[in-house]
Design a protein around this nucleic acid. Structure first.
Lengths: 144, 144
DNA sequence: TTCAATTATATCGTGTGCGATACATTTTAT
DNA sequence: ATAAAATGTATCGCACACGATATAATTGAA
């Protein structure tokens, strides 16, 4: 038996599981806003910088257009965003927040601190967890 | 602007992205075996320990039955596994490898080293990456 | 012992992710 | 100037994830 083929030795499985579990931790908080985690990511981009084209979103999230286009369509159906044709480049669609989308930021403001307190309650060592951020950044930079 | 609401400050986003990118790194290797990453995870469990019930798989992968049941159905259609009714407990289904599923282990044996060499080629610092394993384990233990 | 709670698995619906492909617009090389 | 390449977005199909729910088998408590 190759020890590398054992589940417990797989770093990828740890990343996969950790990612799912943290997203699950977000879920009850995001349900109050009636959005999903990927939708929350898009909202964060727009709260930071409204009126961006779709490729800006795909670049920052490192997702393909075939993921983002339907994601934005659902968000438009929810009344969170609008799509306008781009003025300079007719191929582009400019994504902007609706009033409802802007207002959601107020409710979202408490999410990070709620998550921190949830994790503390579950005895997550936030200090050691924070230390892996630069390592993940290096990994992402190398693989992207 | 709350700095916590910025995308770049989100550890969850890093985990989510790193997980996707590493899974993408596996994809070309797994395509040679004609399986997906979650299917590869199931195969690793079975190569390590054949003839397990479904709840063993859901427990080890920390996935729900509504994810695993269709996953196993696709693997059965691929001829990799069989399902037998449990003898002691009629509610259980015992999952076991077919000859084809067992043979696949030989081809899979080279995947871990291929991945390591791919990552080295992309200048992933494998040493620092390995150091986050216990931290992810702590996170997973706390959240599961 | 018997019936309510639990357990093991399955089904359904929604929302991602992503490969493959399509199509229109812009850029670039000649 | 114009055809070929590149870019921006969309569509289709498939495989996860997961909440909600269903069903059958087993366990456990009165």
């Amino acid at each position: 038996m190759h020890k590398e083929l054992k589940l417990d030795n797989q770093l990828c499985f740890r990343l996969y599981t950790a990612s799912r579990l943290v997203t699950q931790a977000y879920r009850p908080l995001l349900e109050k806003l009636n959005i999903t985690y990927p939708q929350y990511l898009v909202m964060m981009i727009l709260w930071e910088n409204d009126n961006v084209c779709i490729s800006t979103i795909t670049d920052r999230l490192m997702l393909e257009t075939n993921t983002v286009t339907p994601l934005l369509k659902r968000m438009e159906d929810l009344g969170l965003i609008k799509r306008k044709p781009g003025k300079e480049d007719a191929r582009q669609k400019i994504i902007s927040l609706t009033a409802k989308g802007k207002n959601l930021q107020k409710k979202a403001a408490e999410i990070p601190s709620c998550l921190v307190s949830e994790m503390s309650k579950k005895h997550v060592n936030l200090k050691e967890l924070g230390s892996i951020a630069p390592i993940l950044d290096n990994l992402i930079k190398a693989l992207k």
